[in-house]
Write a protein that binds this DNA or RNA. Structure first.
Length: 499
RNA sequence: CGGGGAGUGGCGCAGCCUGGUAGCGCAUCUGGUUUGGGACCAGAGGGUCGUAGGUUCGAAUCCUAUCUCACCGACCA
């Protein structure tokens, strides 16, 4: 059995394996603040790449960025009843505005605020309240705004990237004159998320709508993209909400329409977060650590010179050659981005493994032999394949190799998901059996459902299985019966255990 | 919030039951050896043992309180 760079392996302990991958890849670490993570440079570079692509997509569809306060007055928060109920148990609340030195120099909060401030768990209330002043006429619509920010949700249990008390995200908030426009926007943004996840993160997703129980608090409809992780659990990777007129009414967003009457507007909101990084790790990484999809990778390749130690005669030449190679590679582009190349000329043992664990797509080895032959030895992180290329050929071919890695990762994930997906289960016994298997979380089961909250609740209590979504396609239920109750089915539902 | 677990040099741990003021591995630094790879030898630096109180001649070790963290549940992006 070959030694793996990450211990334990996925098979041995998936949860612990995940923590180790994050740590060994230098993506993030726990901070001294409960539930809050420190995103390290290697992880933040990844997030910046993701941001940059998404931001371009938002702007290309007419959205503009803005920034709203981190604090929401308590009174404002309480205006949409369902929304409040959904977030009340996980709000951080600011109640004081200064510190005083007490006994023994110990600092204690003083100066109570007249009205407590909530640290935003999401910004619907503060943004829609603002929109009520921005929107006066049908000419002001649609209003398409996005914000990049942090939010705070005081979760009971946290896990790096997957669920942290504070996380980074973007939240889009839009206002429309008609229901049709708002629904179209909700679906457009869902498509953008799905496209980003599949084409950039190489994570295959299933698009669908949430059941009543899983909907965003205050929304009429929540659209979601669901991904399958390597342990057979599902991950909600992004959501897009059709908010109906609920928030428009709560925040009083009205406009004077062409016909001269005052109308309430229709709003949407949509978001993706640093959680996608967690999804990416759980989709692609292996027992040797992280594997980054080239399109968003913090770096595309690392050059590792083989130095001669004591007999340093040739070392300077090798490092120089590596620097020249780096410069030439950096002139190349892949996926509208100049190649980012790291050069690690440290002589520490195990530096190769450090880069394996960081998930960099290509490792380029250059030593005396390569210099002499005019070649480079290149190893792909995804397949572990080592190929010796003539130097010039590799430089022009690098983007092509990266593109192949990107596709390989996506296809591999797609194949994996296909193995974890069944549409064959039609009776309750088989359904229960599937999800009671201890070795695996069970994957996706696409099965008929009667649309009743009671049956949904039942499988959640018995099996910790939830309805991830009602897929947008495959909704033919004619003649089919609910997998749980046997009653006539209303929907095809995608069931899974979830993060 | 419930269930078990853990807080000891930068990291990972032992020591605790049977009190006598700290030890191992990795990492770091120095010197040497080695060199297509997760090295070896020798030496060195670095810790008031989570915090507060108590028992004692003496506490990492016993007692009490308290804080924190990761993990498994319930809750959730």
């Amino acid at each position: 059995m070959a030694k793996t760079a990450i211990s334990p392996t996925r098979e041995e302990n998936y949860a612990e394996w995940y923590q180790q991958v994050v740590k060994e890849a230098q993506l993030a670490e726990n901070s001294s603040v409960r539930g809050c993570m420190i995103i390290k440079p290697w992880g933040y570079a990844l997030w910046e790449n993701m941001q940059s692509v998404l931001d371009g997509m938002f702007k290309a569809t007419g959205h503009k960025n803005a920034y709203f306060p981190i604090f929401i007055p308590l009174s404002l928060m309480s205006k949409e009843a369902e929304h409040v109920d959904g977030f009340a148990t996980e709000c951080a609340v600011v109640t004081h505005h200064r510190l005083e030195k007490g006994e023994g120099g110990k600092l204690t909060p003083a100066g109570p605020l007249e009205e407590p401030l909530i640290v935003r768990p999401t910004s619907e209330m503060i943004i829609n309240e603002t929109f009520s002043r921005w929107v006066q006429s049908y000419r002001d619509l649609p209003l398409l705004i996005n914000q990049w920010s942090n939010v705070v949700r005081w979760e009971m249990r946290t896990r790096l990237f997957m669920r942290t008390a504070e996380f980074l995200w973007q939240e889009g908030h839009t206002v429309h004159a008609t229901k049709e426009d708002a629904v179209a926007e909700t679906e457009r943004m869902l498509d953008i998320y799905a496209g980003f996840l599949e084409n950039y993160m190489a994570i295959p997703v299933i698009k669908g709508t949430k059941s009543d129980a899983e909907r965003f608090p205050g929304a009429d409809d929540t659209y979601t993209v669901e991904a399958m992780m390597q342990d057979g659990k599902a991950l909600q990777a992004g959501t897009s909400h059709f908010l109906g007129q609920n928030f428009a009414k709560a925040a009083n967003i009205q406009f004077l329409d062409k016909d001269g009457t005052q109308k309430h507007a229709w709003t949407t909101s949509w978001g993706v977060s640093t959680r996608m990084i967690g999804g990416m790790i759980m989709t692609h990484s292996d027992d040797d650590g992280l594997i980054l999809p080239p399109k968003v990778a913090s770096a595309h390749a690392v050059i590792l010179p083989f130095l001669k130690g004591k007999d340093k005669s040739g070392d300077a030449t090798i490092v120089e050659a590596c620097e020249a190679l780096k410069a030439e590679l950096e002139a190349q582009s892949y996926a509208e981005r100049k190649l980012v190349i790291e050069l690690d000329d440290s002589d520490t043992a195990g530096k190769k493994w450090a880069w394996v664990k960081k998930g960099v797509p290509l490792r380029i080895e250059v030593g005396a032999r390569e210099l002499e032959e005019g070649t480079v030895a290149v190893t792909r992180r995804d397949t572990n394949e080592k190929t010796v290329y003539p130097r010039a050929e590799f430089i022009t071919k690098a983007p092509e190799i990266l593109a192949d890695i990107q596709i390989t990762l996506f296809k591999r994930a797609e194949t994996f998901r296909a193995d974890k997906m069944t549409t064959e289960i039609t009776d309750k016994e088989a359904f229960y059996k599937r999800f009671k298997n201890d070795r695996s979380a069970g994957g996706f089961v696409l099965a008929p459902w009667d649309g009743d909250a009671a049956s949904e609740k039942q499988v959640k209590e018995h099996l910790q299985v939830t309805i991830r979504c009602l897929p947008l396609t495959d909704q033919d239920v004619a003649g089919k019966n609910c997998v749980i109750t046997g009653n006539p089915a209303k929907y095809m539902a995608l069931f899974a255990k979830a993060y």
